[in-house]
């Protein structure tokens, strides 16, 4: 870790101004940033501390939806009664993420900005080649240890998996990221690696996430987040699914369906093909399992991560069936 200067922002505007300086980075809970600084990946010249800023940590849930302040803690959002009742998948995604200690420190804004767990990305001393860190330097992962890498949304430049949980649920329910005045859908906020894997988010220097809003929907109310992994807790997903369902009055025909995948793609992955295949159909196991296979259309594996292509549709199917069976 190299020396950096520390600046305690006095207002959101001051924070944005400071963050526009070259080498400046915003500091919220620090659970990603300090970790990456210790690995030698993040080398900020200035840390702009926003963790104490007032008014950015509110959580509001009402008829029209939810507004999550960027500085709300993961644990606060996970435990919020309104979120639990109107957006259960959001709460479940959060409480199955990281550890209790991290959830108590980490902010919602920081959570969206977390970086990949690709081991090559995290070890610059041993693996200088990483297009995400050093554009054009190559990709150390391809041909190496790929068990945790993405099978969807990859490019020749980078196959790093997006590891977060919350954003998967946000993508499913059409949430919006507020960068002060500018607004973007969460789906558009996350970028595919393409030829520029160093750019992960559609955020510009000097911009700051202030809020995330999620529109209310019947599907969000009847939703779940299913996270599958070898370790029962404190592990990133091998595959996960955020699913919300709205049924017709008959209680069996699918009116609205939302499906997004985590743990398998380079960004939070909306599985619209699965949604379209099942909308208007009767919720029944065989059809669900068949449609869930569409979740991994176009998937490409790199050896050790092949299992994700098998696993992801099963996770989607189980999540749909589980949500469908909810009261």
């Amino acid at each position: 870790m190299r020396d950096f200067s520390y600046l305690r922002a006095t207002s959101p505007a001051a924070a944005r101004e400071a963050a526009a300086l070259p080498g400046a980075m915003l500091l919220a809970g620090g659970t990603t940033l300090l970790d990456l600084a210790k690995c030698g990946v993040a080398e900020p010249e200035t840390l702009v501390d926003i963790s104490h800023l007032k008014g950015l940590d509110t959580i509001e849930v009402g008829e029209h939806g939810a507004r999550l302040g960027a500085l709300a803690k993961m644990s606060q959002v996970a435990g919020h009664e309104g979120i639990k009742s109107r957006f259960p998948a959001v709460s479940e995604a959060l409480w199955q993420a990281a550890s209790a200690q991290i959830r108590n420190m980490a902010s919602i804004g920081g959570n969206l900005m977390q970086r990949t767990r690709c081991p090559y990305f995290r070890d610059p001393a041993n693996f200088p080649a990483c297009n995400k860190r050093e554009p054009g330097s190559g990709c150390s992962a391809i041909g190496g240890v790929t068990r945790g890498h993405a099978v969807l949304g990859t490019s020749e430049a980078c196959i790093a998996m997006y590891p977060g949980d919350l954003a998967v649920a946000l993508v499913a329910f059409d949430a919006t990221v507020h960068l002060g005045e500018r607004q973007l859908s969460v789906d558009d906020f996350f970028l595919l690696p393409g030829t520029t894997p160093e750019r992960e988010h559609a955020i510009q220097p000097g911009e700051m996430i202030t809020q995330i809003s999620i529109p209310a929907s019947a599907a969000a109310r009847r939703s779940t987040y299913l996270k599958v992994r070898d370790r029962q807790s404190y592990e990133f997903a091998a595959a996960s699914a955020a699913v919300g369902i709205e049924l017709e009055a008959d209680g069996r025909t699918i009116r609205d369906l939302r499906v997004a995948l985590g743990g398998v793609a380079t960004k939070p992955w909306r599985a619209r093909a699965v949604e379209e295949a099942l909308k208007g159909k009767v919720l029944e196991e065989d059809a669900v399992r068949r449609a869930s296979l569409l979740a991994v259309e176009g998937a490409v594996d790199h050896g050790a991560n092949h299992y994700k292509i098998e696993l992801a549709p099963r996770v989607v199917a189980r999540a749909i069936l589980k949500t469908g069976a909810m009261a």
Partner: peptide, 24 residues
């Protein structure tokens, strides 16, 4: 987990080298 090209353990931290948690 060994990267065979480099002869190096790549999961050399407690987030990636998994030991059981209470939940396990």
């Amino acid at each position: 987990i060994v990267d065979r090209r480099h002869g190096r353990i790549v999961n050399n931290n407690l987030a990636d080298y998994l030991v059981p948690t209470n939940a396990d």
